[in-house]
């Protein structure tokens, strides 16, 4: 395989390795997504079908004030969930990465196993845990931590707790992957040079696992923005998030165009900043890679 050295032949392997995913995602992802954006410019007819004519009314309808309230609620819940997940997963990943290699994967497995139970069932189990007459609330009442009329279920606190619970493994995995590659000798060196433990962690470890943290943020924040089963099952009367609205419009309310418009709004809110950030970040990555490669070439 000398092709790598010749520019003219370089195209073929590139095309070969690119085509399957490119074509697949073009047909099964891009095309259908565009279809949805198109449907946002339609309206629903009374039988629940989609009208033939084009209109802007569905879009303008979606910008109503009550949707904005729900949107805002969705954003802050997702931000809190993401922050909590990071707070919990960084120390865990840090700890696991320092364990002897033969135990590491067992710890990882322990983190993953809860994911192998059905997620709806896990949510249901939380309802038992947070039950108003359950042991947790009784204990908290006895300790005087919570007032008599406070419940642990059917409120935003429950939604956040359970969302953190379901997202945590997905946050730990990428951070662990990054931490595993981190050279822990650097921390020792910093300590030898007089940095405090905290300072070394903050100034060396965290930047060292930056990519893992970024991945974790993405894999937690995005599903949180779109979640609807959790607010549905453990949320209260004012617990509706954007995902609930979309699902409701798509099913019970028989208004597919409005569901499409809401979904489009959600995906624009998520996709645009994330893609912009990633493209910028990618240039950064590319720089690093090309620096490393040229360094390798020069030593050769």
């Amino acid at each position: 395989m000398n092709t790598m050295n010749h520019k003219s032949d370089k195209k073929l392997p590139e095309l070969l390795s690119t085509a399957p995913s490119y074509l697949w995602l073009f047909v099964f992802f891009l095309l259908p997504s565009l279809l949805v954006f198109a449907i946002a410019f339609k309206s629903a007819d009374s039988s629940g079908g989609i009208s033939d004519s084009w209109t802007l009314s569905t879009i303008s309808n979606v910008l109503r004030q009550d949707y904005i309230i729900v949107l805002w609620r969705t954003i802050w819940v997702s931000v809190v969930v993401t922050a909590l997940c990071l707070l919990l997963s960084i120390p865990v990943a840090y700890w696991i990465a320092q364990q002897p290699k033969k135990y590491r994967y067992w710890y990882l497995l322990l983190i993953i196993i809860p994911l192998w139970t059905n997620f709806l069932i896990r949510i249901f189990a939380w309802r038992t845990l947070l039950h108003p007459e359950g042991f947790l609330r009784t204990a908290l009442l006895w300790l005087g931590v919570i007032p008599d009329d406070m419940f642990l279920l059917n409120n935003m606190g429950a939604v956040i707790t359970v969302t953190v619970y379901t997202c945590l493994p997905f946050a730990i995995l990428p951070i662990f992957a990054a931490a595993e590659k981190f050279n822990f000798a650097l921390l020792e060196a910093a300590r030898d040079l007089g940095a405090s433990r905290f300072k070394a962690f903050y100034a060396i470890f965290l930047p060292g696992i930056k990519r893992g943290i970024l991945t974790a943020i993405l894999v937690v924040f995005i599903p949180a923005m779109g979640s609807y089963a959790i607010p549905d099952l453990v949320g209260g009367v004012d617990g509706e998030l954007l995902g609930n609205k979309i699902a409701l419009r798509a099913s019970a309310n028989r208004n597919l165009p409005e569901a499409a418009a809401l979904a489009a709004m959600l995906s624009i809110i998520i996709t645009v900043p994330v893609l912009a950030f990633m493209l910028k970040h990618k240039r950064l990555l590319r720089n690093i890679i090309s620096i490393r490669r040229s360094a390798g070439d020069s030593t050769k």
Partner: peptide, 29 residues
């Protein structure tokens, strides 16, 4: 290459799209 830039975007996008949208859009397609 330029091809890979668009490829990157294409592979990336499904990660940042909520399930609900993916479900509806594929059904329609």
């Amino acid at each position: 290459s330029r091809l890979q830039t668009s490829h990157y975007g294409l592979v990336y996008a499904p990660l940042v799209v909520p399930d609900v949208l993916m479900g509806i859009s594929m059904l329609l397609m």
